[in-house]
Structure formats: structure tokens, C-alpha cells
């Protein structure tokens, strides 16, 4: 497995606050990777570091085998930033020209075709585009530089459901056509489920779980039964989350082996349940009131 993105002890500090701390992560090539986590988990910071937009305070991050942010890396990595910024004063045609001028590997035909398919008017000012059109323009710029890795940071967060679906569909088509690796962050699990085949849950700069979505769904189970202490579960069943009432216990466990204990009612998990189980903090470590920035 070659890694498109590899971070080792990666950290970024703003003033006194660590936005990302001691993050170690491997993202394999050839996947559409969904990066999910609560707000403030460090997703944006991680992706900006990978895109070379930020310099790390500590540790290192490598993209496609080289340190992120180098001139050689810039050409190979596409980056669509949060809220898909475009130049409000420039026209759609100006944006394509910008891409053509600033990228050696620019695929003018791809860019033109995509804009044509989207029905965007070339003379339209980008400032007058709808949110969905703007996102599509930013995606077009990211795709037409023909990157090996495309990083998208919450690209659909501010879009309506229809625009969101069109955007992700466009992304999927491009991935199929050009065989690129994609890392996509979102806090909307439903979007990721449609788009991604690999999932990483990032909480407090730490990778909670990473793996192919198919495998994750196959190896995670919800066990419901009479109240029991988590320590008394078999050793190969890794407890992700545990919930107890007076008489009943509900566990989310990860295990490769089949579950034979007749006391349990075993059910599958949806991807959303799985993600939520990992995002929950261990009961003991959880403060009463949590203040988030």
C-alpha cells in the first residue's frame, strides 16, 4: 500500500493553541478517502498542511512521497479549499485562463468540457455565480490541473442538497475517468457514504479508526443484552463504545471473528452510527461541560 498522504507526529500551533497535535496518519493511494470528525478535530489544518498551504510547527507530512508544499508537489496536488473561494471580480473564462497560465499540466479541454456540461456562461463574473456553481468552478480548476491527488476541504458544507449531490456526482465521474486519489473532509456522513470507499475518523488530532468502508461495516457490530462489564467481553472484541442502563448494556465492538455468545442480540451498524460511536469520547475522560472554540 503506497501512501498518498503520510503524517508523522504532525502538529500545527497558532499562538498558544494547537490546531493539530501529534497527528500520525497514513492515507492509501487509489481511494476516495473520507476524513470525518467533529468541528475542531483538526481536519482543515491537516488538509492545509498536506496541501502545502501551511508549514508544520512540528513533525512532518509527505504527499505522494515528497514533502508537502514543494514546487514539484504543488503541481501534483489539487486543493479545493473550504467554501470553495474564487475571484469574485473575475469571469469564468478568466478563471480558466488563470489555471492555464499557472499550471504546466493544464488540461484545457477538460476544463472547457466541464464548464460546458455545467452550463456555465464563460463571461459570467464568478461573484454572481450560485454557491453550487462556484463550487463546481473551483472543482474544475482543481481537476484541470490534472493532479494525482485531489484534496477537498468541506467542499459541500454550504451547498443545498441538490447542488451537493451534483457536485459529488461530478467528482465521482472525474475520479472514475482520471484515476486520481481523493481526500475529502466532511462532517456529513451521508455525503461520505455515497462518495467514499475509505474512511478516517479524526478526533482531537488522533486517528480513531481508518479503513475501507466495506471492511469497517463488516467488522463492527452492536451488541445488546443483559448488563455486563466491558472487561468481561472476549479479548478479540475491541469495545468502541459502551452504554449501560440498570439492566441492559449496549456495546459497539470491532472484531474479525464471528460473535457466538447467545446472550447478545447482534445487529449491524450504519456508517453514521459507526462514526458517532468513534466520535464519542470514553465516558471517564468526558468532562461535564465541553466548551468548543
Amino acid at each position: 500500500m503506497t501512501a498518498v498522504l503520510q503524517a508523522r507526529g504532525l502538529g500545527k500551533r497558532y499562538g498558544r493553541r494547537w490546531a493539530l497535535r501529534d497527528c500520525t496518519i497514513d492515507i492509501p493511494a487509489g481511494h476516495v478517502v473520507g476524513l470525518v470528525g467533529p468541528n475542531g478535530a483538526g481536519k482543515t489544518t491537516l488538509l492545509k498542511l498536506a496541501g502545502g498551504q501551511l508549514a508544520p510547527t512540528s513533525g512532518s507530512v509527505a504527499v505522494l512521497g515528497g514533502p508537502a508544499g514543494g514546487p514539484a508537489q504543488l503541481a501534483k496536488v489539487g486543493f479545493v479549499a473550504q467554501d470553495t473561494p474564487v475571484y469574485a471580480g473575475l469571469s469564468v473564462a478568466d478563471h480558466l485562463r488563470l489555471g492555464a497560465r499557472l499550471n504546466r499540466g493544464w488540461d484545457a479541454a477538460l476544463a472547457r468540457n466541464r464548464i460546458g456540461q455545467l452550463g456555465l456562461d464563460l463571461s459570467h463574473r464568478a461573484g454572481n455565480l450560485s454557491g453550487g456553481q462556484r463550487a463546481q468552478l473551483a472543482l474544475t480548476l482543481g481537476l484541470a490541473k490534472r493532479p494525482e491527488l485531489l484534496i477537498l476541504d468541506e467542499p459541500v458544507a454550504s451547498l443545498d442538497p441538490l447542488a451537493r449531490r451534483e457536485f459529488l456526482q461530478g467528482l465521482m465521474e472525474a475520479v472514475a475517468e482520471h484515476e486520481l486519489s481523493v481526500v475529502l473532509s466532511s462532517h456529513l456522513v451521508a455525503d461520505l457514504e455515497r462518495t467514499c470507499d475509505y474512511l478516517i475518523v479524526l478526533v482531537d488530532s488522533r486517528v480513531r479508526v481508518a479503513g475501507q468502508i466495506e471492511n469497517l461495516l463488516a467488522t463492527h457490530h452492536r451488541l445488546t443484552g443483559p448488563r455486563r462489564d466491558p472487561g468481561r467481553l472476549p479479548a478479540d472484541q475491541h469495545v468502541v463504545s459502551a452504554r449501560h442502563t440498570d439492566r441492559q448494556s449496549t456495546f459497539v465492538v470491532r472484531t474479525e471473528a464471528p460473535i457466538h455468545d447467545p446472550a447478545w442480540t447482534v445487529s449491524g451498524l450504519s456508517l453514521e452510527d459507526l462514526v458517532l460511536a468513534y466520535m464519542e469520547k470514553p465516558a471517564a475522560a468526558r468532562p461535564l461541560l465541553e466548551v468548543q472554540q
Binding site: 498551504q53 479549499a81 473561494p85 474564487v86 499557472l102 490541473k145
Partner: peptide
């Protein structure tokens, strides 16, 4: 302010 630096800094020039 507009975030466009993120757009332009990810073209293939430093």
C-alpha cells in the same frame, strides 16, 4: 479576506 489565496497558492507556482 476572500480566501482566494488558497485558490491561487494551489496552482503550480510557489
Amino acid at each position: 479576506e476572500a480566501g482566494t489565496h488558497l485558490l491561487v497558492w494551489n496552482q503550480s507556482i510557489t
